[in-house]
Design a protein around this nucleic acid. Structure first.
Lengths: 238, 238
DNA sequence: AACTTGTGTGTCCGGCGGACACTGGGTGTA
DNA sequence: TACACCCAGTGTCCGCCGGACACACAAGTT
């Protein structure tokens, strides 16, 4: 690790005030930033202690002075990547525009860090910023007649939809309209999957956004149905 | 690997027709079954070539005679675990009861194999049974006025909801109403997350099914809104 | 000047997926 | 009957992974 070039620099480069320039001190933030860079560029699978350490020009064990385990590093990565939760107070028009705005912001964040779906599956601790995002969405439903549990379920439903549309090929449903080899295999077995074949080859009217717009509109329409049924106090129909 | 007990058995146990009983030959199916047993019991993280091989009493390299890589083993596991897709032709009442039935069946399958969400995230090949499940759901929407792309988006939306409700703590939204330590931390920071705190502590009217029923109802209501708007040919309201 | 503390290093471990050469029993053929 | 071939299963090796632990070494403190 002690590079010869480093010594040469020491001899030849001007030094500031007698103290050696010396590389920047390691901090949790610098580690998390480096790990996020790796994940953004090469995916979650490339995030190993060695790889992250190499990017910072230290040994992997140096990282353990600042994080206790890889799981903790990932947790810090997530908390840093999701960013500050938004304030939707200024969005006019009630719960629906607020949720649309929230969903768009969250989707944009997740789009910038495609590894977030992979990193956030499974049991793990939750950080304050992540909670803040949820708070923000739950608050958007404050003036609806939904119960507390229903508000949480609604937020979970939307955030789940973001996760699903951001991670490709989630349930084996997605890439058929675009992936050429899949279209080909579907064509070959069209006798076995007639409805799917017809749906995948018929002229599509949906935007190519992984079902994002379609799903969000359905979910919000469904919420509207529930909310409207509550707003009108019990009418004659069950 | 050559067990003494095996030799003893050879000497003492009756043998059928002169041929030694000899352990069962390795097949892809036997390997997949063993891997599924491991995953069901100990989770996806415990599925390693060595672990699976040990369960079959062979060396890990023996598995590579039947699958080319671990990824292929996982693919075979999934294809085997999802089972035969259902035939919904006999379900009366139109698209909605058919989709409800489909969702219940799929949810039950995924409940039996909690590792399916983890195993099916990320790029991977898709098997015919998995496609068959999608076919089944798309076919359920055959007599609706939805376009092909919309049918696929609708199916993706529902299967994504299944995935989300089956994998716990998906977006940091779920376990707050149940997990005691999370309730405690939320109580401690209730000033910072007032809407969430109020929602999580207010008397809940939702069943404790991870938002499954709530979300499915919202999605189907949203689909109904779209379908109804198509069924009535363009009326006066936009 | 000696001690403590905090930060990065070097080495080791078990487990992972996988490449590759080998072996030994069953079978088809001479 | 003898032999060669075939191939499923074995043993060994490699590089990478997360992580434990002892150590080095500079900066303060007393």
């Amino acid at each position: 690790m002690a590079e010869l070039a480093e010594h040469v620099d020491l001899l030849w480069e001007p030094r500031g005030r007698g103290a050696r320039p010396q590389r920047q001190a390691l901090t949790v933030d610098r580690i998390a930033d480096a790990a996020i860079e790796v994940a953004d560029a090469e995916g979650m699978a490339a995030v190993s202690m060695q790889h992250v350490a190499a990017r910072l020009d230290v040994t992997k064990m140096a990282l353990y002075r600042h994080v206790t385990s890889k799981a903790e590093l990932v947790a810090v990565m997530i908390e840093s990547a999701v960013g500050e939760p938004p304030d939707l107070g200024s969005v006019p028009g009630g719960w629906r525009p607020r949720l649309v705005r929230w969903a768009d912001l969250m989707r944009e964040t997740w789009r910038r860090h495609p590894w977030l779906p992979a990193a956030t599956t499974g049991e793990r601790p939750t950080g304050p910023r992540e909670v803040g995002w949820t708070e923000s969405a739950v608050a958007a439903l404050a003036d609806t007649p939904l119960s507390g549990g229903e508000r949480m379920d609604a937020v979970f439903l939307i955030s789940g939809h973001i996760r699903n549309t951001q991670s490709s090929a989630t349930a084996g449903t997605q890439p058929w309209t675009t992936d050429k080899s899949l279209r080909e295999v579907l064509h070959r077995h069209r006798g076995r999957f007639p409805a799917l074949f017809e749906a995948a080859t018929s002229p599509g009217t949906t935007p190519n956004d992984n079902g994002w717009t379609f799903g969000l509109t359905r979910i919000l329409d469904g919420l509207a149905t529930l909310i409207d049924s509550r707003d009108q106090p019990p009418s004659d129909d069950a």
